[in-house]
């Protein structure tokens, strides 16, 4: 039964897979082609015979150059990276400890607490937005990266906790018990036995959290104001949109460059990501 006829493999495998690949990647091709298209071509009429939407004969790096020279794009990239790493680290730290406690320890209200951490994930950000602005004022965090580093965990912690809790549940209790019999403390067993085993789970939670922080727009739009403190999505959107020049070239250049760091992270970790999720989704 493992031997398939060639046509079958084409119809049920290669063709659908190709459609998926093309469909998924076409917008990226579109970004790229727009980013390297000279402005003069972008001014061409829709109906013009010379209109070649799918390729360009005079590719240019002008938009990338402008992006680098006329905006503080490298700075935005660094800000986004810093904010994403810091908020991911905080969320992982909290999620790891809380996830372990909820999965392994018996204490009163454990169920209720677990549920309420999960429920915080449901609260719509549009509701929190204004009250959060008040808190940011109280702590004097306005226009600092900390305004975001401390608010992003609100939607990252519930996710990390939940995912890691699931992962911990899949690790056999016996491992810990053996270590304890050998004289390890509860805390020590957690630190030296359980956490190392949970590394794939930690990685997947971390990657996911990193992506969400990288992606966030609305808090970043309103809590930061200085041009040099913005994140990539906000900087690109708020500073490159103007009426009479075609901003599309720079906008798409920004979108591409803004995705590369995350894409790199993923290409390194995609296998861990899959195995990590495997663990947690079993639980």
């Amino acid at each position: 039964m493992l031997i398939e006829r060639t046509w079958k493999r084409w119809v049920y495998f290669y063709i659908p897979l190709t459609v998926f690949v093309v469909g998924t990647l076409f917008p990226f091709y579109w970004m790229l082609i727009t980013a390297i298209r000279p402005d003069a071509e972008l001014y061409r009429s829709w109906r013009a015979a010379t209109n070649t939407p799918f390729w360009t004969l005079q590719p240019t790096l002008e938009h990338f150059r402008d992006l680098m020279a006329k905006t503080t794009f490298p700075q935005w990239l660094w800000n986004t990276f810093f904010i994403a790493v810091a908020s991911t680290a905080i969320s992982l730290f909290c999620g790891l400890l809380a996830g372990y406690a909820l999965a392994r320890l018996r204490f009163p209200m454990a169920g209720a607490l677990g549920t309420s951490i999960f429920v915080t994930y449901l609260v719509p950000p549009t509701l929190l937005f204004i009250p959060l602005a008040n808190i940011i004022r109280t702590f004097q965090l306005g226009d600092t990266p900390w305004a975001l580093i401390l608010t992003y965990p609100t939607f990252l912690i519930p996710f990390c906790t939940w995912l890691l809790m699931g992962y911990f549940k899949t690790i056999p209790k016996e491992l810990e018990e053996c270590a304890r019999i050998d004289g390890a403390t509860r805390f020590g067993a957690m630190l030296r036995i359980i956490f190392p085993i949970a590394v794939p789970g930690i990685l997947s939670a971390g990657i996911f959290a990193f992506t969400l922080s990288w992606n966030e727009f609305i808090y970043a739009l309103v809590f930061l104001s200085s041009p040099e403190k913005k994140t990539v999505p906000v900087g690109v959107v708020s500073e490159l949109i103007r009426g009479d020049i075609y901003f599309w070239g720079q906008l798409m250049a920004g979108a591409l460059l803004g995705s590369i760091p995350v894409a790199l992270v993923y290409s390194f970790f995609v296998e861990y990501y899959v195995t990590g999720l495997t663990g947690s989704v079993k639980g």
Partner: peptide, 17 residues
């Protein structure tokens, strides 16, 4: 790895595309 790309581009930017 490439199938994950849509998921990792900041939503606002890919939505602009």
């Amino acid at each position: 790895a490439s199938m994950l790309l849509p998921f990792i581009v900041p939503t606002v930017l890919s939505t602009f595309a």
